[in-house]
């Protein structure tokens, strides 16, 4: 079954959406969209680092993304500049640094477009292992820190006053984002990863009454976007990553429609 590239793409995409949905809810709740963007933009540096050191690219991406996240937090704490400005600086310099570093490594021949916008149709069986193994780990970890992370998200002071270890929980959360970036890179590319985190979560808001419902809804909405986007890309011969994001935006638009009342 997994011999077919289209099936592999579908399985990979749904796997990523299932993880990105719940994690993306927290990015939406914590207003970290731009933060997540900055982390994913740093992934290209991670790829360069991976090639340079001859280590697994995913490991390079995770290390770089976490480093950037910690740097962001430290810079924000020092309060020299607004968070907005710091994110703007880091987001684009991280991306550009990655591009420059890769172009300096003249011996490398790699498909830059694939990294930037994803190449889901080139997913191999080994990638599926990464996605489902890593994804299961991320979901298990997220389930473990779910309650404290939610408490910190509602109000950090309140959570800390009531004994929630805010800092470790937040660091763990950033690590999870980094892992998701590493495994989602192949599907939608580093430029579009945050859309897979945020749009399904936003689409699930309307129907959700609890945080958990919203997380599950986001996973389902993301999976629907993957299915729609991939079929769309096959039908209209469009690039798969952007097609998935367009489909996600369409799902979000549908979620905005007024719900017919049954009487």
């Amino acid at each position: 079954m997994l011999d077919d590239f289209f099936t592999r793409a579908m399985v990979a995409g749904i796997g990523v959406a299932a993880v990105a949905g719940p994690l993306g809810c927290f990015i939406v709740w914590r207003r970290m969209a731009y933060f997540g963007d900055t982390m994913s933009h740093s992934a290209l540096m991670g790829v360069a680092l991976g090639f340079l050191l001859g280590i697994d690219l995913a490991v390079g991406v995770i290390v770089t993304a976490v480093a950037v996240a910690v740097l962001l937090v430290v810079l924000q704490r020092t309060r020299g500049m607004s968070a907005d400005t710091i994110l703007g600086i880091l987001s684009h310099s991280a991306l550009s640094l990655g591009l420059v570093a890769i172009s300096l490594m003249t011996w490398l021949r790699l498909d830059l477009m694939g990294y930037l916008f994803g190449d889901v149709l080139a997913v191999r069986v080994a990638d599926l292992w990464w996605i489902y193994g890593g994804g299961a780990l991320v979901l298990a970890a997220l389930a473990t820190i779910w309650r404290p992370l939610l408490a910190v998200t509602v109000d950090e002071d309140l959570a800390r006053a009531e004994g929630v270890p805010a800092l470790p929980v937040q660091l763990a959360f950033m690590l999870l984002i980094a892992v998701v970036i590493a495994i989602a890179m192949k599907i939608v590319g580093i430029l579009l990863i945050t859309s897979l985190l945020i749009i399904p979560a936003a689409a699930a808001r309307r129907i959700a009454r609890t945080p958990e419902q919203m997380a599950i809804g986001a996973a389902v909405a993301g999976a629907a976007a993957v299915v729609l986007g991939l079929y769309g890309s096959l039908e209209f011969d469009t690039p798969s990553g952007p097609s998935i994001v367009v489909a996600a935006a369409a799902v979000f638009a549908v979620s905005l429609l007024p719900i017919p009342r049954q009487g």
């Binding site: 939406v28 404290p148 408490a151 002071d157 006053a161 945080p211």
Partner: peptide
């Protein structure tokens, strides 16, 4: 503890029960 000006973003769906049992 009841902190000053706690605002819960509308994008986070919470019921009173859930808010009560947050921690």
């Amino acid at each position: 503890y009841v902190p000053q000006r706690l605002t819960i973003d509308r994008v986070l769906p919470l019921t009173v029960h859930r808010l009560m049992t947050l921690t």
